[in-house]
Write a protein that binds this DNA or RNA. Sequence first.
RNA 1: GGGCGCGUAGCUCAGUGGUAGAGCACUGUGUUCACACCGCAGGGGUCGCAAGUUCAAUCCUUGCCGCGCCCACCA
Length: 826
Amino acid sequence: KVWEWKAESGGAITRQLRRLGASCDWANERFTMDEGFSKAVTRVFVELHKRGLAYRDKRLVNWDPRFQTAISDLEVETREVQGKFWTLKYPLADGSGAIQVATTRPETMLADMAVAVHPDDERYAGIVGKQVKLPITGRLIPIVADEHADPELGSGAVKITPGHDFNDFEVGKRAGFKPAEMLNMFDGTARVLQTSDGSIPEGLLGLSREAARKAVVELLEREGALVSVEDRVIATPYGDRSGVVIEPWLTDQWYVDAAKLVVPVLEATGSGAIKIVPETWKKTWFNWLENIQPWCVSRQLWWGHRIPAWYGPELDPSGKPILNADSMLDNRSPHRIFVGETWEEVCQSAQQSYGSEFKIIEGSSDDSYGTVRAVDALDEERDSKVYIPLWRDLDVLDTWFSSALWPFATLGWPEETDELKRHFPNDILISGFDILFFWDARMAMQGIEFMGTPPWKTLYLHGLVRDAHGQKMSKSKGNTVDPLGLIDKYGADALRFTMAAMESQGRDIKLDEKRVEGYRNFATKLWNAARFLQMNGVGASTSIAAPEAKLPVNRWIIGEVVETLAKLDKAFADLRFDDMADAIYHFTWGTFCDWYVELVKGELNAPQVGSETRAVAAWAFDQILVMLHPFMPFVTEELWGAMGTRPYELIVAKWPAPEAAVDAASKAMVEQAVGVIDAVRAMRSELNIPWTASLTPYLVTDLSDLKSTGEAIGAMELFRPQLRQMAKLNDVLEVHTPPPGSAQIVVNGATIAFPLGDAIDLDAERGRLSKALEAAEKDRDGLATRLGNAAFTERAKPEAVDKARADHAERALEAERLAAALARLG
RNA sequence: GGGCGCGUAGCUCAGUGGUAGAGCACUGUGUUCACACCGCAGGGGUCGCAAGUUCAAUCCUUGCCGCGCCCACCA
């Protein structure tokens, strides 16, 4: 049944991954309960035990009374709960007075074993060592001196319940109590159980924690032992899965000596052998590792890796086994522990331990059956040997114990497989920070312990997806987003791209559906661009390197690809997925679609330049597909195939290698043309010049700046068809003074006038120019002020001063041109 | 109590010691033969508050206000 559930749940997870387009090695799927993996788990446990790093210990654990199992510190979550604070009065046994103690859990007084005061607390100096007679139970308990008691708090005296409080456990040990002697007053479901001294009144037995509290408080009140009650907010431990209050409970459990395993992890992180990204997590990482507690790894569950430990009876002085099978498994009777990977191995070490006069047999996991068999065997004394039954531990290992082995156990360890050699260690682990301690830290610990090196070089911690209100998504809150729903609506590509674009290091992601929609539109845009290219005879590129190109537009777009690629490479090296997404998005839409495609529309099938342009367009588009593929694998792969016959699929295509450089001259020319088009469009829009009206541009020659004029005219000549198409401009004319009634634009130091005759709205044009002039003057003057400041020119970095000078010159020139244009208007 | 982080355009978020950016939303405009899931143009921010360091601070330092998370034994 559970395996069915596992198949279903695991299937759902892998289905989601597949639909997201995760490129996994599906043939090598692994589950931690697979046979091979289980073998690795057993091996690790046995090895840790051999090395003294896994051991059985009796101490307080976090006990979950609902699931009736121990859990680790990490599975406990502290919640602030409204509670009460009771002050109690315990009478001294010699009748010489009473001592007050305070508690938030009055019911635990039934298992009190001492009252502690601070050694330096003069108020109590005289009574340390005296006995107190505990109300209700009448138990006599000592007053002890211990640093734990804080004189500032309450009365300065504190009741000590070593069996039910982590602090008190430590105090109790210091006061000389052995864990085995510590009183326990709860059973596994947290109902009141008689303590070993039998002092709890009958009426209280079997009550739940809550009921016991009520009853105890009533009894205390009746005895006059209750001094006061006040309301108080109490930090209370809850099981993160069960949601019930966790009970500190005294049991025997298996522990892993995490403090030892952590030493090389700290070293590796310190030396940089493990790099943590973003770095801010380093502090958290160190802080946790440096304060790590023994890791409780045994769980009283029936699903998981069974602990490979067997218990056998201790021998009494006469050499007979002490068979108390019903108490053997929880180690309440004297026992010996055997740990081994197989029954044979365990048998062997047991034989060695007990001696050859004994015969080792396997005790049934059903206690009574094992007892009977063992006793029968004893009676018969067959082979004249005494039979020793060994019972295997019923507990299973914490799931994170096996998960921690993932980086190497999946690769066949402990066998020395080729996969292991090839894939261990990994370059990078990408993980949510919510499992930083649960999983990542333990992978690091076990990886170094068993493989000698950290399991990965970089640990990248990404943000968590939160809902629209910033709440963490959880099944219990019901605010989870099903990725499949979003995929159905917008496509996996859009979802993936959104995730990448939102993943700036470390910060959480509030998923905004509008954003997903926007990237769906982006995918559509790409699709349409491909369609257009195909319609114009552009197919698959035949080369990986950029094609030879003469035309400036083509040389320019090749340079743009080179620059975009550099941005992507840089962002990737920095693990900035948002920057990568941003760069490819803007190149594709803003540069390629909005400008390149528009600029070459007329050239694609032109007689002279057509083939070159088609080749460049095909190549550039291919580069987009390759660069975009990691983010949008589905559309890009589809288009890759649609553009032409390919020797291989996009998913295995090599990352772009243009073998080309940015051509500054082409770039300048294209930018000049683009500047003109932009300015004309803005002018048309602001002056309400209908799009259908073509305009004749008059380039105003400036004898003092023939360079700007020349460049402008060159670019405008070169892009004459594009200017006609994209800005509705007639052929350019050169003049020294523009005709009256002209609208004017200033682009890179060149002034272009458009005679509008009577059609011009002089006020609008004046307003337009004034506004631009004002902006230019403001910038110019601001820069002038700064440059006039001796402190700036002397102390600022030379680059900053140079830049200010250059900016100032540019803005000043622009202002001058605009002022002239304005003056011409009259 | 300790630690980490956040507060930047209406919203969701980037960002840099040299007078701020994106997407969406918004306004105007356009159905020109890739795309209205579109094109074109445009408006919008005293970068939480205060002080300090600096020639210069949104960016560094300190304090404060508001918010989130993690860790922790205050009975």
